[in-house]
Amino acid sequence: MQLSKSCTATLTALTFAAIVTAAPGGGTVTGKVTYTGTPAKPKPIDMAKEPSCAKQYTTPLMTENVVTGSGNTLEYVVVYISAGAPDESSAPSTAVTFDQKGCHYTPHVLAFQVNQELKVTNSDQTSHNIHPLAKINREWNKSQPPGTPPISEKYDKPEFISVKCNIHPWMHGWFAVVKTSHYAVSDGSGEFKLPNLPPGKYTLTAWHESYGTQTQEVTISGNETKSANFVFTAKPY
């Protein structure tokens, strides 16, 4: 479905792409992601089984399914243009890096573009297996012993992919593969910013791993900065 839509939009896509690269500047969408209700408390992670990781923490690492900030803000929400913007036909040539350090993924949510190079690195003294549980894309599962070169991969379809390490069952992260160059992940204070938007009417989607997706429409004209906020409903369990 997404595919056919993208086909019909190819022509406009190309024009828009040209505009995007030719004319940075343009409009900006900024906003804040917050929640209402009571979210589940982060839980401490016990890494006893992997002493080389456990000893890197004086206080235990916490789960990151729901990371909140003061003022009920939500971190790790992927906000991206899901409609209205052209599909990007070429991926950026820079690679994104997903690091494993202290038996923990950084960043917890990594957003990147279709066909953009993904590099997975292992900064630990132990082997990890990187197992992104892709359902639409090709699934793979590879171990990375310490000191070995980065694993380089690409995804050719947009998808939110849960990533796990079977060796360390607590390790969990996400790949947000999007087909637009207009995306952001909300930071520690729940804020995000999508710059360089050419004028137009867009659908903005916010995705949170536990609380699902929300969308809203924004229209940009000229160089204006529009604000778009998202509010998710939190669940205690």
Binding site: K43, T63, H172
Partner: peptide, 14 residues
């Protein structure tokens, strides 16, 4: 079961 959220056993406290 949701291991990223430390629910290894598949408990449903709700």
């Amino acid at each position: 079961i949701d291991e990223g959220n430390q629910n290894f056993f598949g408990l449903d406290p709700a």
